[in-house]
Amino acid sequence: MLPILRQLHDADGDRARADTLLRMPDSVMLKYHQVIDAACRRVGFEAGSNFLALRVSLALAVRDGAGLPPPDLAASAELFRVGLAEFATRAAT
């Protein structure tokens, strides 16, 4: 198993899982999206599953003439990324 996938499986809580997902390369997400999704769902980390789906959709999206993905999809992915990053770095309360 790839070390980053092992990190996701062994993560101590959703913040650690979010951190791992944020650091994960697109190539790993695309190749192992079913494994990653199963790991998130197994522990009830719905935000992780949703983030994965959004990143995979963004990576697979048809680009425009400038090489950009659909603006609404790119904006949604960025907002989700920012929210997940804030969650991952927020101190546990």
Rank of each mutant, 00 (worst) to 15 (best):
G65P: 01
A59R: 04
A88S: 13
A59T: 00
A92Q: 13
S49H: 09
L5H: 12
E46M: 06
A59W: 03
R15D: 07
F51M: 13
Y32G: 01
V35S: 12
G65S: 12
D72N: 09
V82Y: 07
A59L: 06
P3M: 00
R15W: 03
R17E: 09
A75M: 12
D14F: 14
T89V: 05
R41K: 11
R63M: 06
A38N: 12
L22Y: 03
A38D: 15
D19A: 15
P3E: 14
D10Y: 03
L52T: 00
A66N: 14
H9M: 08
F51Q: 11
F51T: 08
A77P: 02
R42T: 11
K31N: 06
L5M: 08
G67F: 05
R90G: 05
M24I: 10
L2C: 01
A39K: 07
M24Y: 06
D72E: 15
V56D: 11
A11M: 03
H33C: 15
F45Y: 14
V28C: 14
R90A: 15
T89W: 01
R90C: 04
A91T: 12
D64H: 05
G44N: 06
L58I: 10
N50E: 15
S57Y: 00
D19C: 07
G13T: 12
A16P: 05
V56Y: 04
D26H: 05
P71M: 11
S76C: 06
V28P: 10
V28F: 06
A75Y: 03
F87H: 13
T93F: 04
P70C: 09
D37K: 12
L68W: 02
A92Y: 03
I4H: 05
L21D: 07
P3S: 13
T89S: 13
S76I: 03
M1K: 08
L21A: 11
A16Y: 03
L60W: 02
A91K: 10
E46S: 09
R81M: 04
A11K: 08
M1D: 12
R81W: 07
Q34L: 14
F51A: 06
D64C: 04
R81D: 09
C40G: 05
P25V: 01
D10G: 00
A38W: 02
P70I: 11
V62G: 07
T93N: 07
R81E: 14
D10R: 08
A91Q: 14
V82S: 14
M1A: 03
L2G: 00
A92W: 06
S27W: 00
H33V: 02
R55V: 07
L30C: 08
L68A: 11
P71E: 10
A75Q: 15
F45H: 13
Y32V: 06
L54D: 10
E46C: 00
D14H: 05
N50Y: 00
L30Q: 09
E78R: 09
A39V: 05
F80C: 12
V82A: 14
L2P: 15
D10E: 15
L30N: 12
G44Q: 02
L52H: 04
L79S: 12
R63S: 09
A11W: 03
C40M: 03
A18W: 02
S76A: 15
A18E: 05
F45D: 02
